[in-house]
């Protein structure tokens, strides 16, 4: 916790719990995962906070996936009707993939069969094209690297810890991929598909579990490196 507005302090990642005071006199809109009461700024989640003068940044350690436009997600087809598929994207809301997105503008439910493309239970990589509080997210698969995923093992990780799995400029993901000889498809929604030989998948899932447990520690990359060198060596 940080008290006193006249001292400028640089704190490196302090642990916070919901309701903890972050700032005595915060100006402007509250940053994500915080809220303001009067001029006081409080935390909304369990997480780590970085305070640098007037800047407050909270990194949550748990929480549901809230869709954002342009997010890359991995989902599972759970249902379909004449015009769209319903996709479970591990979020509060079910996403929709319109049939027009797959079949093109001239889609007609009489001539096209939705099940010819995606069946219930299929896993797919997609991008969110639109979402707001009042409407469910809409997906697209019309881009490079999107579409049905045929092989691989799905692993779930808390969505708030996905940035740690990716690492700075993808460094962490690269380490795991090269050491376990697998390919990771990482969805922002907390679903990861691991493709490759089964020993590699087992190892990669161990690494992901370690990230789940130790996401708050700064020395995570080294720990993952040690784990993978020990296990594969």
């Amino acid at each position: 916790m940080w008290h006193g507005s006249d001292i400028v302090m640089v704190l490196v990642r302090t642990k916070v719990l919901p309701g903890e005071l972050l700032h005595d006199s915060y100006q402007g809109q509250p940053p994500p995962y915080t809220y303001k009461l009067g001029s006081k700024l409080f935390s909304l989640k369990v997480g780590l906070v970085e305070i640098e003068g007037k800047e407050v940044k909270l990194i949550p350690l748990a929480g549901p996936y809230i869709p954002r436009v342009n997010d890359f997600v991995i989902g599972k087809i759970i249902d379909f009707d004449a015009f769209s598929w319903d996709v479970d994207i591990n979020s509060i809301y079910t996403a929709h993939l319109p049939a027009q997105d797959v079949f093109g503008r001239d889609f007609s439910p009489q001539t096209h069969s939705l099940t010819s493309q995606f069946k219930v239970g299929d896993i797919l990589a997609a991008k969110i094209v639109s979402y707001d509080r009042t409407k469910d997210p809409i997906l697209t698969v019309r881009d490079h690297g999107l579409g049905k995923i045929i092989n691989g093992e799905p692993i779930k990780l808390s969505p708030s810890k996905i940035p740690r799995l990716i690492g700075k400029k993808g460094s962490m993901a690269k380490i795991i991929e090269s050491k376990t000889k697998t390919k990771l498809i990482i969805g922002q929604n907390g679903v990861i598909i691991v493709q490759g030989p089964s020993e590699g998948i087992v190892l990669a899932s161990k690494a992901i579990r370690l990230i789940e447990e130790k996401a708050h520690l700064p020395s995570l990359t080294n720990m993952i490196n040690d784990l993978l060198t020990k296990e594969s060596g």
């Binding site: 919901p18 409080f42 909304l44 369990v46 350690l61």
Partner: peptide, 11 residues
């Protein structure tokens, strides 16, 4: 609730 990561004003 805190464990689930739902936004809450306080414990």
């Amino acid at each position: 609730l805190a464990d689930s990561g739902i936004s809450m004003k306080d414990l």
